[in-house]
């Protein structure tokens, strides 16, 4: 029996990304990001340069001995805070203000976030192999309803972030060392930038990284760097 759609959706995403990451490890043991940028959309600002970080969906888990992920509330809370802080300072460095929209409480906004998640899944499929109408045509939109987010948060652009990160428990690491197998700990996620005036996805970046790093400031900064790699702001 399934859990609520929210958790299930998050996991489906996680599982797929994990699979991609595992394949990646098997082949070359890599950290890789892949990028797609809308080809014809310059960045422009109507008002002050401001980005809203929309409900960052971050979960940090511990990969326990049995190989399954247990959500760690303390790590998650810290990891989420670090991501938000790093993104904010990254943007500040470019002269862009940011605001965080946590805990969407409006039904319509919630629908926009869900629509974005669905778009994200389609974008990922198309990153592997584009559908005919999307070949060389990075054209994805939330529609003009995104202006609700713009008006509410006074931001021209919205940044959506999704991260699933897992860390091996000590016992698992020990086992891995003994058997020379990968611990399986990994990091996966995506970031996307949406022009809130018209809903168009301006930039999308998928992150697959087997090295993890959101429990301390240094590695969090590196994760965010990977995540925002190529963002056209």
């Amino acid at each position: 029996m399934e859990h609520d759609s929210f958790i299930r959706r998050g996991l489906m995403h996680f599982e797929k990304l994990m699979l991609a990451a595992v394949l990646c490890i098997a082949v070359s043991g890599c950290a890789r990001t892949s990028n797609d940028v809308a080809t014809s959309l310059p960045i422009h600002w109507t008002a002050d340069k401001r980005v809203v970080l929309v409900d960052p969906d971050v979960e940090l888990s511990e990969l326990t001995f049995g190989g399954v992920a247990m959500l760690r509330a303390d790590w998650t809370s810290k990891g989420r805070d670090l991501i938000k802080a790093d993104i904010a300072s990254f943007l500040r460095g470019k002269g862009i203000a940011s605001v965080s929209a946590d805990r969407i409480s409006d039904r319509r906004e919630a629908q926009l976030v869900k629509l974005h998640n669905a778009l994200g899944r389609s974008i990922e499929v198309n990153l592997k192999e584009a559908w005919p109408t999307k070949k060389n045509n990075f054209d994805w939109t939330l529609g003009p309803g995104a202006a609700i987010l713009r008006d509410r948060h006074h931001a021209d652009y919205g940044l959506f972030v999704f991260v699933r990160d897992s860390y091996s428990s000590d016992t698992r690491k020990a086992l891995a060392l003994l058997t020379m197998t990968p611990t399986g700990a990994m990091q996966s996620g995506f970031a996307s930038l949406v022009d809130l005036r018209n809903g168009r996805v301006v930039w999308y970046n998928r992150l697959d990284n087997a090295y993890g790093g959101l429990r301390d400031e240094k590695s969090a900064a590196e994760t965010v760097r990977h995540l925002l790699d190529g963002m056209p702001l």
Binding site: M1, R8, G10, L11, T64, V68, A69, M70
Partner: peptide, 10 residues
């Protein structure tokens, strides 16, 4: 089979 995230507590 059903769970989305199983949990073995330390």
């Amino acid at each position: 089979a059903l769970c989305c995230a199983a949990w073995l507590s330390a």
